[in-house]
Design a protein around this nucleic acid. Structure first.
Length: 439
RNA sequence: GUGGAUGUAGCUCAGCUGGUAGAGCGCGGGAUUGUGGAUCCCGAUGUCGAGGGUUCAAGCCCCUUCAUCCACCCCA
């Protein structure tokens, strides 16, 4: 039989898994300190729970099948729709606003490529039951704090609002919905294609005359500040657009107050594909050229209509999703990941099988103090055992032979400095602490 | 779903116009049996992704298939 993983699926060996886990723990801490509580939901959902929430493309990418009881099921595609289901289903037990975080794998039957996998982990934080600008800002603050806590400096969060998008299109006299959607799709590519190519795409996909398509691209590509659109919305008496602009401005002010605005920028060309977004939307990319092609690492938005699809009550919600795998891959390429966390700092050798028990007693004593310690389980020559100790990345090796045992001592060898000392067994923990945790 | 590239020892790769496989790293053993990461010596390893075809002969040519990577679509 051939040992192999499925296309787009991966194993994580300890050298990768240990730092990954460390990263997850950091994110958990950030979310928890921001007042979000953990939630877990099943990997599998009823197919109908998931279909129709992500748009046609999303529906195609659902991993779906029929289970043994002839039920149509699907692996979750994201964490947001299951959250909406949970809020509707357990409405009575939840106090609103409900702030939850969830760090879990999701599955998409996509074609794998750089920074894209079929199984990947999302780290979501959402607030359900609050439609305020402060709720939007809280979620952004949590997400940006994650980046800060991971040491990411070169990133840019692009902020936009669905109603600004549609408002600009109305200003350009593109009132029909299908044409608007086509325009938005094309506009979203402004960062990849030339303006002329985007014009061409609009002409083709939205069926607009060339001069109008040109006007649309010009409007979006100019990089106008929020104030420009505010004036435009006022002049056109476009109330939804005015409200959207006020909302975005309010959110930016709040994030600025939190001291996290250095990553933030209004960008009217951000579109977001997932169908359920209704308000503010955002997308974060890393700006270091080495990893910029990796795609968005953190995005989300407001989805006030989604929870209502699962019950009679309409509950507004806003959330953010951190892409753990992309972020990890990027940090790895940027050299910001320490790969030594899979190693063990203390390695106890066993010179004679009869002394294994005595060694184990010492090792257990260290473990009780919280030290990560490994005992050699293969035996053989001391030289070999030291070699294994070094390969495990151990800083200290313990040696306990008959002489030491008789004297109630143990040899502590510093593998990095090639020095060693004989210490009383009762002093072992103190000596280890002095070496591994100076000061 | 569309297009492009690649697939040779555990890893990174070499292999000239077809003549039955190499290097580095790594790995295993050793240098008077209670001290490693340096050095030196010795050693093993591959149905050359898989299947078929052309040929006296294929890792190298042709077809098929699978896998991986990259781009598009979409997205984390």
């Amino acid at each position: 039989m051939q040992a192999q993983t499925l296309k787009g699926f991966r194993d994580f060996l300890p050298t990768d898994m240990a730092p990954r886990q460390a990263m997850v723990r950091r994110i958990e801490v950030v979310f928890e300190t921001h007042g979000f509580s953990p939630l877990q939901t099943p990997a599998l959902e009823y197919l109908e729970t998931l279909t129709g929430k992500y748009g046609d493309e999303g529906d195609k990418l659902l991993y779906r099948f029929t289970d043994h009881g002839d039920r149509q099921v699907a692996l979750r595609y994201d964490l947001t729709v299951p959250l909406a289901r949970v809020v509707a289903q357990h409405r009575a037990q939840l106090q609103l606003p409900f702030r939850r975080y969830q760090i879990a794998p999701v599955w998409r039957a996509d074609k794998p490529q750089r920074g894209r996998y079929r199984e990947f982990v999302q780290c979501d934080a959402d607030i359900c039951g609050a439609d305020s600008a402060l709720a939007d800002a809280e979620v952004l603050v949590a997400g940006l704090s994650v980046l800060r806590s991971l040491g990411v400096e070169q990133a840019q969060m692009h902020l936009n609002h669905r109603d600004i998008l549609f408002g600009i299109l109305r200003l350009c006299n593109v009132p029909h919905h299908p044409a608007q959607i086509a325009c938005i799709r094309a506009i979203d590519k402004l960062d990849k294609l030339t303006p002329a190519a985007v014009v061409e795409e609009i002409v083709q996909q939205a069926d607009l005359p060339a001069d109008q398509a040109q006007a649309v691209v010009a409007a979006f590509a100019a990089g106008w500040p929020l104030s420009h659109w505010q004036q435009q919305a006022l002049d056109a008496a476009d109330l939804p657009m005015q409200a959207a602009i006020e909302r975005v401005a309010a959110v930016i002010n709040l994030v600025t107050a939190a001291g996290l605005d250095r990553w933030l920028a209004f960008d009217c060309s951000i579109a977001r594909g997932l169908d359920y977004y209704t308000g503010i939307i955002y997308e974060t990319r890393l700006t270091d050229p080495k990893v910029a092609s990796m795609g968005a690492v953190m995005s989300g938005g407001r989805y006030d209509g989604l929870i209502g699809l699962f019950g009679k009550e309409k509950i507004p919600a806003v959330g953010i999703s951190v892409g753990l795998d992309r972020l990890f891959a990027a940090l790895y390429e940027l050299g910001l990941v320490r790969t030594d966390s899979a190693q063990v700092p203390i390695y106890a050798t066993v010179l004679q099988p009869e002394l294994a028990g005595a060694v184990l007693i010492l090792v257990q004593g260290l473990r009780d103090h919280g030290w990560r310690a490994e005992i050699d389980t293969l035996g053989g020559k001391v030289g070999k055992q030291f070699e294994r100790a070094a390969k495990r990345g151990a800083r200290l090796a313990l040696v306990l032979g008959p002489d030491e045992q008789a004297a109630g001592t143990v040899v502590v060898k510093d593998l990095r400095q090639s020095t060693q000392q004989s210490v009383a067994q009762t002093q072992l923990a103190a000596v280890v602490a002095a070496i591994l945790r100076p000061q």
